[in-house]
């Protein structure tokens, strides 16, 4: 087993076998449960069309997944530094590239766990409605680059800042700004500024795709542009993380 796989395995097990990792998963499940319970306890929300509910749940899963990814990414380097384990890691026979790859794969594994956890929630709220299968498929296709991108961005900041708090706050600010379309409906984003932001915001790209394929049953061909947007986001953030991880701040 090479160094990257070992680090990835350690990161993955940290989520499932570590108290802190399980607490993060509990937070994630708590967010999805709270949203689901809101749907059945609020008369107005319970009347929503099933496809609309599935779309909202897919957006919530993406936001909650990105939130956990940001926490994990912020902890990746700065957390090691604060626990005093970064210097031993850097002096071990592991290249900075392998270290980053291990942590990136660990983050991806954590997202896979979160994605699998989200499927029962999607089924629970949308089994009666249309396009549940599409919702699960597109959540994987578009949610993965968005969530991992935020994790890699946090990783890059964590590597450079050396402080969990600092990288977490910066990444959360970016995430909050990007996820604002969850709160602002498509109608309100119809201005020139709203359209321009939608065109470059990967979170909007994913949300607009969920809207198009789950509610409007649009075909995949009309989503290619948005897929490119989220893949570019993933590529850019990973490149940034790679650049930052070459010289992590360890003092």
């Amino acid at each position: 087993m090479n160094a990257s796989s070992l680090i990835a395995k350690k990161e993955r097990s940290a989520l499932l076998q570590n108290q802190r990792g399980l607490a993060w998963l509990l937070t994630y499940a708590g967010i999805l449960s709270a949203f689901s319970l809101l749907l059945i306890s609020n008369r107005e929300l319970s009347l929503l069309d099933n496809a609309q509910v599935v779309y909202m749940m897919a957006g919530t899963v993406t936001a909650a997944g990105a939130l956990i990814a940001v926490i994990m990414g912020s902890d990746a380097y700065a957390g090691e530094r604060e626990r005093g384990t970064l210097v031993p890691l850097l002096t071990a026979p592991v290249s900075t590239g392998e270290l980053l790859l291990g942590k990136a794969i660990g983050l991806a594994s954590a997202w896979v766990i979160m994605y699998l956890l989200a499927i029962p929630y999607l089924w629970a709220v949308g089994a009666n409605g249309q396009n549940l299968g599409q919702a699960i498929f597109y959540l994987g296709l578009f949610g993965t680059p968005v969530v991992l991108g935020f994790g890699y961005l946090a990783m890059a900041l964590s590597s450079r800042s050396g402080s969990v708090m600092s990288s977490l706050l910066t990444s959360l600010s970016v995430l909050l700004f990007s996820a604002s379309p969850l709160l602002i409906g498509p109608g309100l984003r119809n201005s020139a500024i709203g359209k321009a932001l939608d065109a470059v915001n990967p979170f909007s790209g994913a949300l607009n795709t969920f809207d198009a394929v789950i509610i409007d049953s649009d075909p995949f061909t009309s989503q290619v542009g948005r897929l490119l947007l989220v893949l570019v986001w993933l590529g850019l953030t990973f490149a940034l993380a790679r650049l930052s991880a070459r010289r992590p701040a360890f003092r």
Partner: peptide
């Protein structure tokens, strides 16, 4: 409407499991 019989076991069961 959104069915509570499906949502309740999932919304309560998964956090309880974790």
């Amino acid at each position: 409407v959104v069915e509570s019989t499906r949502i309740l076991p999932v919304a309560l069961g998964i956090p309880l499991l974790i």
